[in-house]
């Protein structure tokens, strides 16, 4: 069984400690390459898009419209510029979770990836909170009385932890279950039985966790930065 995220090759050294190319880092690069190439392809096709959409253009417009509509309905006005960010993290997490179908180790089964995603969402939340509310942002930490300050501080600290651990635990749980299942069955049965499990753990849970990560980021940002 290989439950551990294996080191493939040493990359460089930071303060005397070697940084390795791990399995999940390799699949992160593959996912990034796929998404960047797809974005360039869409950008090239954009000039030939017609006012009456059909086929490929329909799909692209549907995807962008869906995310923009979600931002509009969940966060209200004033957050239209964040649609690109939410589309990016949704697409990255979705494609990352689906790499498990190809036998790669999903990047989201590495706590570093999910923690980086969660910290960027929480960073945007605090930045927008300070830039839109100013002093009122800091005053909310002492509501209703100053004695509640430690509780508010703990709440803010648990936000990135719960956001990252939820995604990480779900995907790593799927990876471990598949390692166990493939060990359990003899070779002829490995083609039949795990496919049902792949449909649930990779297709359903992967899409659901990508959706939930995006929606929870939206909710957190709205709580801190909305106008009312």
């Amino acid at each position: 069984m290989d439950l551990i995220n294996k080191n493939l090759a040493p990359l460089f050294e930071v303060f005397g400690r070697p940084v390795y190319l791990t399995q999940s880092l390799l699949s992160t690069w593959i996912v990034m390459a796929v998404l960047i190439l797809f974005a360039i392809f869409v950008r090239i096709r954009l000039s030939s898009f017609s006012p009456v959409p059909s086929g490929f253009q329909n799909f692209i417009e549907f995807a962008v419209d869906t995310v923009d509509g979600m931002v509009k309905s969940m966060m209200g006005d004033g957050f239209g510029s964040l649609g690109g960010y939410f589309f990016s993290i949704f697409a990255f997490i979705l494609v990352s979770n689906y790499t498990a179908l190809l036998g790669m180790r999903p990047p989201t089964s590495d706590l570093s990836t999910t923690l980086a995603l969660a910290l960027s969402s929480v960073g945007i939340m605090h930045f927008l909170g300070v830039s839109r509310h100013g002093g009122r942002y800091f005053k909310e930490y002492f509501e209703p009385v100053w004695a509640f300050f430690p509780m508010h501080l703990i709440e803010e600290l648990t936000k990135p932890i719960s956001l990252s651990f939820r995604l990480f635990g779900n995907i790593l749980g799927g990876v471990i279950i598949f390692e166990l299942v493939y060990e359990l069955f003899p070779l002829p049965l490995r083609f039949a039985i795990p496919s049902f499990l792949h449909a649930y753990f990779d297709l359903f849970v992967g899409a659901l966790q990508a959706y939930i990560f995006t929606v929870l980021s939206m909710t957190f940002i709205r709580q801190k930065a909305s106008a009312d």
Partner: peptide, 10 residues
């Protein structure tokens, strides 16, 4: 329901 199930699952 999906969002609250995800939060309960934490």
């Amino acid at each position: 329901l999906f969002i609250s199930c995800a939060i309960i699952e934490t």
